[in-house]
Design a protein around this nucleic acid. Structure first.
Lengths: 213, 213
DNA sequence: AGGGAATGTTAGCGTGGTTAACTTTATAAG
DNA sequence: CTTATAAAGTTAACCACGCTAACATTCCCT
């Protein structure tokens, strides 16, 4: 184990480092960025503060990132990966083709937004820049593909048809809006408290089944 | 008409002003802010640039606004008022108690988001600060009250019950999410194009009527 | 051993938000 | 018609921040 590697561990606990090289600065800057985005919000994040947290000069990040937005993008990508993994994990317990699986996906979406509102905002903010990043676009496709697939399964089909794409998008719109309204505190302004679990079931049901004329 | 008032009109057309006093700097700074927010996005707005647009020194705004966020809040408030007025206007043509009125409200919501994405983002971004502003909170209540009222009417009730509050919130979540996904370009990534008008009707119908077991 | 390539640091530039101190104009009272 | 006061501008400066250039140190490979 090199001294720089030992250093990397020390640095994580705010100990001053002794070696010139840091160890794994890119990872630690990303983590510092993630924390700050969560604490202060994506708007009030500053590179300088991340540097202070990592115990490094303000010029150091530019050996690992092109600019500030690339740092934020790294955090956003990490968030998308975590969200995706959580979705896959929550899918497992439920039998294929059931509404439960659709509900599970929506639950993860909202749970993630509430657990990491800062990162969640990042994942959709700056989306002009995000579209230029291949990894980001791919992760987005993967996650949405998951939803589309479940919707098709729920209809009894293995292949995704236009109708599935449409329904999946409507479900996405719904949980997306619900997530944002929640983290923006709009739900607390309502008299009657809302049972998210119940709402999720209700909406999924309404969207997946034919309705009355 | 004072010379300063004449000045105010000139300034709107980028003409250099001749009088020391500006005329109606607060209004013109707000308008400049609105334009810049729309052009560059809320994140990339700078007070300095607004000052340049208004032909005034960078210290001038602080005679009219506490700080940068108060400028942005003024723009956000203006947006909420416009949105509210558009909703009231679009309501008029349709007979009370019909689904058409619900659909009309959703249509205005989405139309506004697409027409003024920058301002629309402002209306929900910075919401931690917005909650401290009474005018902002009131406008929010007014607009949401409009939806609640229509939902109750559609059920044949003049008074808003918990069930109406819930349905209204679900409808809000949906159009909110749909709006954001659209202005973030997520809809264009879909194969099958979506007919917003049709979707709006479909969803409103599904939400307002009982569904099958 | 030695020489890049990688990864840090320092110093400095430009922009931006904000304030303090000063100047000019509007307004209203005597 | 003065003239005091408040309102509404300006200038100059401070500090934080994003970023780059030039330099320093270390890693690692031959």
């Amino acid at each position: 184990m090199s001294s720089a590697e030992k250093n990397a561990k020390m640095q994580a606990t705010t100990t001053k480092r002794t070696t010139y090289h840091h160890g794994d600065l890119r990872a630690q800057l990303t983590e510092a960025t993630r924390q700050l985005v969560e604490e202060r919000g994506p708007d009030h994040f500053s590179v300088s503060e991340a540097c202070r947290a990592a115990g490094v000069s303000t010029a150091a990040p530019y050996k690992h990132f092109k600019d500030k937005t690339e740092m934020l993008r790294a955090v956003a990508l990490g968030g998308m990966q975590r969200q995706y993994e959580q979705m896959v994990a929550e899918l497992a317990p439920h039998p294929p083709g059931t509404l439960d699986r659709i509900v599970a996906l929506g639950r993860v979406y909202i749970r993630f937004a509430l657990a990491e509102p800062g990162v969640f905002r990042l994942m959709f903010g700056l989306s002009k820049d995000h579209d230029d990043d291949e990894a980001m676009v791919n992760m987005g496709s993967n996650t949405f593909g998951l939803v589309q697939h479940e919707v098709a399964l729920c209809r009894g089909s293995e292949t995704i048809e236009p109708v599935d794409e449409g329904r999946a998008f409507l479900l996405w719109s719904f949980v997306h809006g619900l997530s944002f309204l929640q983290i923006d505190g709009k739900l607390s302004k309502i008299e009657t408290p809302i049972d998210i679990e119940h709402v999720l079931r209700d909406v999924a049901h309404r969207m997946m089944h034919d309705h009355m004329a």
